[in-house]
């Protein structure tokens, strides 16, 4: 059993249509990434983590969402060239991800990550 962390991922501004038309997803994501070997149980020392992988970042999450939850063939409406496409805001716990380090932000248990497509109609 791998170590996982619970987070909520929200989609808004129409992006929810790419993810089963569901606005809120409560997920358990891997706590560490790179080679997927056996994980460790809870309560182990932190010193070993460097060997097992790196803390998960927003960049990892985006890839993880595409692989596991994207139910729509139009993945280019969410990701372009491996990054969130232009015109999508990422909010980490209700704050612009630029305030938190953008793609390199290390996700914490309990985080809320919101992807919002910016709108232009009126």
């Amino acid at each position: 059993m791998s170590l996982t962390i619970p987070i909520t991922v929200d989609f808004s501004g129409g992006l929810e249509m790419l993810f089963s038309n569901k606005r809120r997803h409560s997920l358990s994501i891997p706590a560490l990434f790179t080679e997927e070997k056996d994980g460790k149980g809870e309560g182990e020392g932190e010193g070993e983590e460097e060997d097992k992988g790196k803390p998960v970042t927003i960049a990892f999450l985006v890839d993880y969402l595409c692989k596991n939850f994207m139910k729509d063939p139009r993945s280019d409406l969410f990701v372009l060239d491996g990054h969130i496409r232009p015109g999508i805001l990422v909010l980490i716990n209700e704050a612009d991800w630029e305030l938190e380090g953008e793609e390199t932000y290390e996700i914490q248990a309990g985080d809320n990550i919101l992807f919002v497509s910016t709108l232009h109609g009126g």
Binding site: L80, G87, G121
Partner: peptide, 25 residues
């Protein structure tokens, strides 16, 4: 500052093409 880049043209939905609920706008 808030919206650095526009969406690709195909992702920029207009009300004419995509519809709009009156009370929302």
């Amino acid at each position: 500052c808030c919206f650095k880049q526009p969406p690709p043209a195909a992702a920029a939905l207009s009300c004419g093409e995509a519809g709009i609920m009156g009370p929302v706008v």
